[in-house]
Amino acid sequence: MQHAPEQAGGIRVWERVVVDVPGPEFEPAPPRPQGGTCPDAECDGWSTPEMTLRSASVRGERHRYYRQPRQDAACAVLHEQTGTVVFAVADGLSGASASTVGASEACRAAVWAVHAQLDEGRAAPDLVAVLRHAAGTLHRQAAAMLRREPDLAQVEELLATTLVAGTARAGAHGVEVSLIRVGDSGAWALDLAGSRFLPLFELKTDGDVVPTSVTALPRVPERPERWSGTLAPGQVLLVGTDGFGDPLGDGDGQVGALFAAHLAAPPSPLWLAHLLDFSRETFDDDRTLLALWPRGAAR
């Protein structure tokens, strides 16, 4: 990591993090409104007695250049009565005309649907019902935007998005995590001792074959992909869009080394956003990452 020369008062300015060969340099253009707008970058971070959360979402170079808004979103809240962290990460499909809205609405709908179930006393939220609620929210949002009742294809054309939603709570043997997903956003357990990224869902690529289509909300698969387990000591939960997952790959390269080093302990939310905005040629998608450390997991 290189720093710019000292500025007034001895404060240094952060320079862009570069991995291998950087992408082109240019000043980002303002996004055109496409059903909704969102800032170029946003981040969040807080701790409970049991866990520390950080999240960040940044607009990719392709969207900065072509004046498109960021199409990723993340949302996380604490259910105070149970100590459960509820979270969601979404990646609006590029072919959907208002995918920025789709991603943000899907995240909010999923998080608050889980929160409502916990309020009702459910020990294990029905995550399939959460997906259906998020899909219904997208349908209602499309109806409001179109000012008429849309069919499923019209909701897709407007608001299609991937979604990973889940919960994390302290259990007798560690942090218990439950996840569900639609689409190709991913989740990993980062093993701090070995600097290994252990995928919790099937990876996007299968050999040299990359899927050309992605199942996305508002369609809910008959059997959505799920993962449940307990974070082992020294592991960090990561949930991210393919803008992070694609350059990460199997985690053995330079991007994996960069994040393994900087996520050994919870960074500041602003530093996570800065780190996530690294420059590497050919990787120009939006990037979103949510990380959850059990307290005491950092080395």
Rank of each mutant, 00 (worst) to 15 (best):
E6T: 01
V89G: 07
W14H: 15
R223P: 00
S94M: 07
P218E: 10
L78H: 09
T52K: 03
W293G: 02
L158C: 10
V155N: 03
Q141F: 07
R12W: 02
L292P: 03
M1I: 08
G251T: 04
C75N: 08
Q235E: 13
G60N: 05
E149D: 14
F26L: 04
P22V: 04
W293R: 00
V175E: 06
T84V: 04
G243M: 06
W112T: 12
A143R: 11
R59I: 03
A4T: 01
E25V: 10
E222L: 15
V220C: 08
V239E: 08
G23I: 02
A165V: 14
D284S: 13
E176T: 14
G102N: 05
A41T: 08
V209E: 11
L138S: 10
G166P: 05
A170M: 12
A144K: 09
L289G: 05
V209F: 15
R181E: 05
Y66W: 11
A257T: 07
P30M: 11
Q71G: 06
G194W: 09
T205I: 06
T48A: 09
A90S: 14
G186K: 07
G23Y: 00
R169A: 13
V101I: 10
A142Y: 01
A56S: 10
G95V: 02
Q68S: 14
A113G: 12
L190P: 12
Y66V: 12
P22L: 01
E202K: 07
V19N: 05
V130M: 07
G207C: 04
S47F: 10
